[in-house]
Design a protein around this nucleic acid. Structure first.
Length: 452
DNA sequence: CTTCTAATAT
DNA sequence: CATATTAGAA
């Protein structure tokens, strides 16, 4: 068994990856990953270090990814250009001999829609934020762990609808396939969102015809929420404190097509409430014990396989993911420097982001068995123009959706559900973001309406 | 003019 | 329940 030492990673080329700094050892057994969603996702791996390249390749392959490698930025670009169709994601080292990450991101962004995940040993904020602002889908800090790799596939879906799912989708989505997104749920029929709907004037009782001017309701899928969190992280959570902050900018940075300021305001409002609540809880049962629960709740990434096994009974208190919590006098040290930046973590460990019903979807291990959540999120590509604003780069256009028409009852939809129930997991690539709407919005705790 | 907050509607 | 909408204060 040969062992390579690179960076901080010690990897035996066969089965085990060992991160020296964490002491974490992950053993990979082929059987264990049979149903991973990463299966078949094609990745363009870019790193000038041969050994890194080798090791990362192996790690990727372990999870079923398809890997294409490149050592130079220029090579990567040309490969991406020529074979974009067969690629799903670019994983590139930040420091390449022939070009830096910004150049790579920029160029890549101009010529393709491939999501780019940057990796680097440098975990300084500037670097990370810089990369993200330049359009990186994510920023991984080396040493890359098996968990990082395991979750990597998620970013692939920032590109477009997965082909494997395309087939079944076609039949359901049909209804409306314009450039508009499917983020909205329409109470009745499809309606136009662009038209400024604000005519509370006369309310004709029955108008079930064409354009029902029903207000589209935005569903905050996890994907959206994650974007939201990202934006917030970047901008700074407390808009108030610092000038820089909120609804408008969040909107800009999220760069989600049909999103409106109001949506964000509303969500923000809710989010803040959740934060408060969490803070309060923390205070209440401060550092006593059982903080593990809270701790688990702050990552933003949508993890899936990650922790489902653990949540079974975990009754989490909060539901939102307050992220950088506490500006508590206590944890000053840790949070002070920079409240946000859960980046690295987000991929690695994840709170039981999905417990409750929605979790069942992914949870093959869920004891509850089948009460499948009917919501079957789906992704559809939002062909929205990428508002190429000169400003700071934002995130890529949201590729989200959720199509759920209970009304029309899509046969397909149903069958799909059934399949789910019976077949268990399955690799539906499109799980990515939307793990159903409202994952778990339960505030079990007492409500303390702080009159104020 | 934008945002925050609370209240209230859907 | 989650989100929208509105109103008035900042």
């Amino acid at each position: 068994m040969q062992i390579h030492h690179i960076s901080n990673i010690e990897v035996s080329v066969d089965q085990t990856a060992y991160a020296m700094n964490t002491g974490e050892v992950i053993t990979v057994e082929s059987s264990e990953f049979g149903t991973l969603l990463s299966e078949g996702v094609s990745i363009l791996l870019v790193d000038d270090d041969s050994i890194c390249l080798t090791i990362l390749s192996k790690m990727l392959l372990k999870f079923g990814y398809k890997v294409i490698t490149a050592k130079r930025g220029t090579d990567a670009l040309s490969i991406a250009r020529e074979r974009e169709e067969e690629l799903d994601l670019v994983l590139a080292e930040a420091h390449l001999p022939d070009m830096d990450k910004y150049e790579l991101l920029e160029t890549m962004g101009e010529m393709s829609t491939l999501p780019v995940v940057i990796m680097s040993a440098d975990d300084s904020e500037n670097d990370m934020l810089g990369g993200l602002f330049k359009g990186a889908a994510f920023y991984l800090v080396k040493p890359i762990t098996m968990n990082d790799i395991k979750n990597l596939w998620q970013f692939a879906f920032m590109k477009k609808t997965d082909r494997t799912v395309a087939a079944e989708d076609s039949s359901c989505i049909s209804s409306d396939h314009d450039t508009e997104n499917q983020i909205f749920t329409n109470t009745g029929r499809q309606s136009h969102q662009n038209g400024k709907r604000k005519e509370p004037k006369e309310m004709e009782e029955d108008n079930d015809d064409i354009s029902v001017l029903r207000k589209p309701k935005l569903i905050w899928t996890n994907g959206l929420h994650n974007r939201f969190l990202q934006a917030i992280r970047v901008l700074g959570i407390d808009g108030k404190v610092f000038q820089g902050a909120h609804p408008k900018k969040i909107l800009q940075h999220m760069n989600v097509p049909g999103l409106k300021k109001e949506n964000i305001s509303s969500h923000l409002q809710k989010y803040r409430l959740a934060l408060k609540r969490e803070q309060r809880i923390k205070k209440t049962m401060n550092r006593d014990y059982a903080e593990s629960h809270l701790a688990s709740y702050n990552s933003s990434t949508v993890d899936i396989q990650g922790d489902l096994y653990q949540n079974a009974e975990m009754q989490s208190l909060t539901s939102f993911q307050p992220e950088f919590g506490s500006h508590e006098p206590e944890n000053v040290s840790s949070c002070m420097s920079m409240p946000f930046l859960g980046y690295t973590n987000s991929l690695n460990h994840l709170g039981p982001n999905c417990n409750d019903s929605s979790s069942c979807k992914y949870g093959q291990l869920t004891l509850l068995g089948n009460q499948l959540d009917s919501t079957y999120p789906r992704s559809s590509f939002t062909g929205i123009s990428v508002t190429s604003n000169g400003k700071l780069a934002e995130f890529r256009p949201m590729v989200d959706a959720n199509g759920e028409d209970f009304l029309k009852g899509n046969k397909v939809e149903e069958s799909k559900q059934q399949q789910q129930q019976n077949l268990l997991p399955q690799n539906n690539g499109d799980e990515m973001f939307d793990m159903a709407k409202a994952p778990n919005q339960r505030f079990l705790d007492k409500e303390f309406n702080n009159v104020w």
